[in-house]
Write a protein that binds this DNA or RNA. Structure first.
Length: 501
RNA sequence: GGUAUCGUGGCCGAGUGGUUAGGCACAGGUCUGCAAAACCUGCUACAGCGGUUCGAAUCCGCUCGAUACCUCCA
């Protein structure tokens, strides 16, 4: 068994990069906050889940057994008026809450498939874990951090923060004194909470509320942050390795999650907290109300004033991976155009590489500078991933490796300069990074379509014959006609190849 | 207002106390029947102002700007 590579990751809890050490050697428990299924999936959501998908894939690639839990939240998010989000959606659409949840869950899964992400190991639903949530509310009450008001249960943030000053606020950088000060002013517009910073963990359902369950305190429903605490505990244990999510969940969601877990068990839920950063559109945050937004579908179809054309899902994914997951990423048409070209080039290079072989008789038997450079770049690709999953760095190395591939194909590097085993290693690494780690796939080439491949072979063969006779009219006609249907013919030193644009 | 993060060349975007990130675009070249593709070369930047240092774009301070969070939000 190979030794697992040492990786570093940036944890929001400590605010710095740390060397990752699993609780159980060789195994990782990772929890990522999934979507609330009351709406079509947001593009920013896609970036977060693509980021964690790559993290999941890489951890597995380097040898960890990973249990990846990503929830579906189908209850528990409150609106301003206290109405549950799910039931509001239900009323508007005249659907059962579960119907709404089902519809958007399916849509979410479709989108994740379009982005070629792996399914989590477990995808628990909040409504499927009501008993666990009720049990956790009881634990919190038993440990003195919950109080009951008219059938609802609230988490006593002030008491918790005072008794655990090193815990509350650490993740999001909140200052407890400020929390206390701020509150006095707000004390007048009181609701049931003792303090504005407190939050509901169980809510008594009003008469017309459709989603309701029996509990010791009332017929009601669980609070918004509780499902993640309860489900992560159930499937990964009280303390697990990695907790992830979008950066905007840091506060209050994750901070309160920590408080709940700590309040229930006296321990930190996760050792490392990872947060993916936001997506911007033309330098500004995406906002529906300001019209500064684009949906995944609009991005794919080009049906939006923000883009000049449609971009395929893999181009969008590649674009996301060109940036580090912890940086904000600005979507612009120019940037997407650049990503599209870069992606196609990488795919073409990979295709070229996978078809290459070196005749051992050409190999001069010595290790060359080229060999060393290639091995060095491969190492750098891995180092990039080891360093907080820096996909941008890994892609930069792949691009540089790609230039060697092309040079080799163009005979600008002699075949004898690359050792056969180095070429094999390069082929494996390229394929591994593109398919297994980054989860990219070539969506434009013939993709094993024998009919298309056969036809293209015939067409290019005829063109070759025409060219041999210097019949430029015929050969150019073929080239131009193919270009019109989006097929680019590439005349190389080693013969003709083609790719779909 | 409070709290964070960030501000990199024409565009996007890594990185970082002293050495070329990478992609796209652009210019020149090689190759080619022509073109495309590919390859080579060039464009060498780190918001502004101070400070620390032998040396800072990288550390510190201030200013300006951006983004996020401050109980809807990936």
């Amino acid at each position: 068994m190979n030794e697992i590579r040492t990786i570093k990751l940036y944890s929001s809890l400590s605010g710095k990069k740390e060397v990752f050490e699993p609780i159980v050697p060789g195994r990782i428990g990772m929890y990522v906050c999934g979507p609330t299924v009351y709406n079509d999936v947001h593009l920013g959501n896609c970036r977060t889940f693509v980021s964690f998908d790559v993290i999941y894939r890489y951890l597995q690639h380097i040898g960890y057994k990973v249990r990846y839990v990503r929830n579906i939240t189908d209850v528990g998010h409150l609106l301003d008026d206290g109405e549950d989000r799910m039931s509001k959606g239900a009323r508007l659409d005249q659907l059962e809450p579960m119907e709404v949840a089902q519809k958007y869950t399916v849509g979410f899964h479709d989108m994740m498939r379009i982005f070629n992400t792996h399914s989590p190991s477990i995808e628990p639903r909040a409504t499927g874990h009501i008993p666990e949530q009720i049990a956790m509310v009881q634990d919190i009450i038993d440990r003195g951090y919950g109080y009951i008001k008219n059938g609802s249960v609230y988490f006593d943030v002030i008491k918790f923060a005072k008794e655990n000053p090193a815990v509350y606020g650490k993740l999001s950088g909140r200052v407890i004194d400020e929390l206390l000060a701020e509150s006095r002013e707000n004390l007048k517009n009181q609701d049931e909470k003792n303090h504005p910073a407190d939050f509901a963990i169980w809510i008594k359902a009003s008469e017309e509320h459709i989603m309701r369950w029996k509990s010791p305190w009332s017929v009601g429903f669980p609070g918004w942050h509780l499902e993640c605490s309860a489900m992560s505990t159930k499937y990964l244990g009280q303390t697990f390795d990695i907790h992830g999510g979008g950066g905007d969940l840091k506060f209050p969601h994750h901070e309160n999650e920590v408080a709940q877990n700590f309040g229930a068990c006296g321990c930190q839920p996760a050792r490392y907290w990872l947060h993916a950063n936001m997506l911007l559109l033309n330098g500004r945050k995406m906002s529906k109300s300001e019209g500064n937004t684009i949906s995944p579908q609009e991005l794919f179809s080009g049906d939006s004033s923000f883009v000049s054309k449609g971009y395929s899902p893999m181009v969008v994914k590649f674009f996301m991976l060109m940036a580090h997951y912890r940086s904000t990423l600005d979507i612009t048409d120019d940037a997407l155009l650049a990503a599209e070209k870069g992606f196609r080039k990488l795919m073409d290079t990979n295709k070229l590489l996978q078809g290459m072989s070196i005749d051992p008789r050409d190999f001069d038997g010595s290790e060359s500078d080229t060999d060393r450079a290639i091995l060095q770049l491969i190492d750098e690709a891995y180092q990039g991933m080891d360093d907080d999953f820096n996909t941008a760095m890994a892609l930069a190395s792949l691009n540089e490796l790609g230039s060697y591939v092309n040079k080799l194909a163009n005979k600008q590097i002699a075949a004898g300069e690359v050792a056969p085993w180095v070429l094999e290693r390069l082929k494996t690494v390229f394929h591994t990074f593109i398919s297994d780690i980054l989860g990219l796939k070539d969506e434009t080439s013939g993709d094993g379509d024998d009919t298309v491949d056969g036809l293209m072979e015939l067409i290019l063969d005829i063109r070759g014959m025409a060219r041999a006779q210097k019949d430029w009219t015929t050969s150019d006609k073929i080239r131009d006609a193919l270009a019109e249907v989006g097929i680019q013919v590439k005349d190389g030193k080693e013969g003709v190849s083609w790719s779909k644009q």
